[in-house]
Amino acid sequence: MLDLVFWAPVMIGGLLAGGSCGLLSVYIVGMRIPFLGVCVAHAALAGAVFGALAGLEGQMLLLPALGGAVVTATLLGLADPRKINMDANVVMGLLFSVTMGLAFVGFGLFSVLGKSDNDVRSLLWGSLNYCQWNDVTLMLIAFGLLVIFVLVFRKEMRAIMFSRLDAQAVGIHATAVWTVFLILAAMLITVNFQTVGGLMIYSLITNPAAAAFQLTKGNTRTMVLATILGAASGLGGFLLSAITDLPSGAVIVLVSSLVVMVAAVWARLQKR
């Protein structure tokens, strides 16, 4: 007999995490900034670590995690690569190393202070224990916000993805729209990383788009397909994880990577 109390939030959580990260992945891969996932996830992790050190626990850890992620995303958005003469990926690398350093200094402080770091350590890998109805609600809100953003700013994001400089040249407020997007992405990654895992979310914000780009073209079709592939990877990964008792993040990575491989083979066969 299926234990719906456990399985229902897991399945819906998997769908939402996969779908929202899949939609996000179109922009992440489109802009060639897959590093954003690890960068923001580590910023969130650093926030959570210092929140835990300050005595916060459970859902309350989300607040400092969100703070760390949003500050990092804002810095990334305002750093115009052309003005600072540095590629976005280099800026991300810099912020990633700083936030990772902070997070691991924080982990070191747990032992110095004689505290347990179990709560935050599990954030690195993701756990289905976190996937309860209140988590699903947060995932749903984050997904809803992303969908609203996409509907409102789709044409601006399409231009920014093509070229941020060109978008500015045609009179689009590229920096403002891009910064809002990054903040939203940071929120979404933070909300999802406790179930998918801080390290594993990287694959979920790149693989669905990588697969969709192989199979179709055009902005709308790609976004719809990436969302579906992401949702399928998320749901499939969560279910497999629940059945096998393996870490959810690792299983999602393998499932979404398999989707990319199948898409690549399919695209190659279609070209013959």
């Binding site: 489109g30 993805m161 093509f162 070229s163 780009f213 902005n219």
Partner: peptide, 9 residues
């Protein structure tokens, strides 16, 4: 422009 992987038409 070559900054995008997105298959725009």
């Amino acid at each position: 422009p070559s900054h995008s992987e997105m298959p725009l038409t």
